[in-house]
C-alpha cells in the first residue's frame, strides 16, 4: 500500500512537471527540433533541469542508502548490451516523436489537460506496444 502511495506522489510531481515545462505540448516539443524554422529552445531547459536534478538526487541517494525506503533493493537495469534492437527501436521512436510531437512521458500527463487528441495518440501508441510485444514473442529463426 505504501509503495502505491509513494508512486502516486512521484507521479503527481512528475506529471505537474511535464505540464509546467511544456513537454506535454506537441507544438512546443516539435519547435525544439526546428532550429531552421520556428525554433523554441525551451526543451533544453526541461531536459537540463530534469537531468541535473535526477543525477544529483540519485548520487546522494545511492551514496546514503543501500536500499530504498520501501523495498529491499534498488531495481536498476542490468543490461549493458548495445545492439541493433536498442538503436533501431530508439531510431524508430524518434521518427514517431518527430511526426507526432508526443513522447510517452509527455502524452500521459497531457491527457489531464488536453484529452483530445492526446487520447488518439495514446491508444495508437498502446496498439504499437502490443504489436511489438507480439512480434518479439514470435519464435526466432535458429542462427546457431
Amino acid at each position: 500500500m505504501n509503495r502505491i502511495l509513494s508512486a502516486l506522489v512521484a507521479g503527481l510531481i512528475f506529471g505537474l512537471g511535464i505540464a509546467i515545462s511544456g513537454m506535454g505540448n506537441p507544438a512546443k516539443v516539435l519547435n525544439f527540433f526546428d532550429p531552421l524554422g520556428t525554433w523554441d529552445p525551451s526543451l533544453a531547459f526541461v531536459m537540463g533541469g530534469a537531468l541535473i536534478t535526477a543525477a544529483f538526487g540519485y548520487r546522494l541517494l545511492f551514496g546514503a542508502r543501500s536500499a530504498p525506503l520501501l523495498d529491499t533493493k534498488f531495481h536498476l537495469p542490468t543490461s549493458k548490451v548495445i545492439d541493433t534492437k536498442l538503436i533501431g527501436g530508439s531510431a524508430l521512436f524518434g521518427v514517431g516523436w518527430g511526426i507526432s510531437g508526443f513522447c510517452p512521458g509527455g502524452a500521459i500527463p497531457a491527457l489531464g489537460f488536453a484529452p483530445w487528441p492526446t487520447a488518439l495518440f495514446l491508444i495508437s501508441m498502446g496498439a504499437g506496444i502490443l504489436l511489438a510485444r507480439r512480434l518479439q514473442a514470435l519464435p526466432r529463426r535458429q542462427t546457431a
Binding site: F93, P104, I123, S124, G128, I129, L131, A132, R133, Q136
Partner: peptide
Amino acid sequence: GGIIVGVGVT
C-alpha cells in the same frame, strides 16, 4: 506517429 512510437519504445 503513435504506433511508431509504441513499437520504437518497446
